[in-house]
Amino acid sequence: MSESLSTYIPKNSIQLVLNILLEHPIPIKIVNKRATKHGDFKIMKNGKAQITINNSLNEYQFLLTLIHEIAHFTTFKKHKGVKPHGIEWKQNFQHLMLPFLQPSIFPQQLLPYLANYLKNPKASTGSDVQLTYQLKQYSSTSNTTIIFEIAQGSLFTYNNKTYKKGNTRRTRIECVEINSKKTYLFNQNAEVLLVQ
């Protein structure tokens, strides 16, 4: 494991991650924050696999994303041609993640949310509103707010545009972009900047 990778994950998880990477070696590239994803797994044109992970994640988000992406790699090696987040990936992710679910790695208050998420993991941890909210509590540098926390009618900015929060549907929130008056649907976990 590269020295830099160990600075992004909880100290007590380093040996477990090292063991996984010894069994499943794959290059891991740490990149600047991307708005649409925390990490990804891809097969490059030369046929080699690579994982990228955002450098903006807190250590718990980073570890969860890392194991999520390694699960894609192990699934790819065992079952080429299956759905990216199908049953094979879910089982590999659960198997890889289980040893990390301990209070020496994750804070005690996060463990129930992680355990609940891992019962049936989705393509993105962002689809689990409560887990996302709990993970965000450990991000000290962020001045953003998760959209489901703000009051209906509040103004916020996202990607340099200003919106007004509207009604909440089942999984999305209707928001009106102020200049165009168009309605957009936001994921409940979207990180936005509240207009004061």
Rank of each mutant, 00 (worst) to 15 (best):
L5H: 10
S6L: 10
K11G: 06
N12R: 12
Q15K: 15
L21Y: 04
L22N: 15
P25N: 15
K29P: 00
I30T: 00
V31N: 09
V31I: 15
K33G: 07
K33A: 14
K33D: 07
K37H: 10
K37L: 06
K37E: 01
G39L: 09
D40K: 10
F41H: 12
F41E: 01
F41K: 07
K42H: 07
G47F: 07
K48W: 01
K48M: 05
Q50E: 09
I53V: 14
N54L: 04
N54M: 05
S56K: 12
L57P: 02
N58A: 02
Q61I: 03
Q61R: 12
Q61S: 13
F62H: 02
L63S: 02
T65Y: 11
H72P: 01
F73W: 10
F73N: 08
T75L: 07
F76Q: 04
F76A: 05
H79N: 13
K80A: 15
G81N: 08
V82M: 06
K83Y: 13
P84D: 07
H85V: 00
W89H: 04
K90R: 15
Q91S: 14
Q91D: 11
N92W: 08
F93G: 01
Q94F: 10
H95C: 08
H95I: 05
L96H: 06
F100P: 07
F100D: 00
P103R: 10
P103Q: 10
I105P: 01
P107C: 11
L110T: 00
Y113W: 00
Y113H: 13
L114S: 03
A115R: 12
A115S: 09
A115H: 04
Y117F: 12
L118K: 05
L118Q: 03
N120Y: 13
N120G: 07
P121E: 00
K122L: 13
K122G: 03
S124L: 08
G126P: 02
D128Y: 12
T132C: 12
Y133R: 13
Q134V: 00
L135F: 05
S139C: 08
S142M: 11
S142E: 14
N143L: 14
N143E: 10
I147W: 00
I147A: 03
F148K: 06
F148G: 01
I150G: 06
A151L: 13
G153R: 11
L155W: 04
L155G: 05
F156N: 06
T162S: 14
K165T: 00
T168Q: 13
E174V: 07
C175M: 04
C175P: 03
V176M: 14
I178Q: 09
S180K: 01
K182C: 04
T183K: 03
L185V: 10
F186V: 06
N187W: 00
V192T: 06
V192N: 10
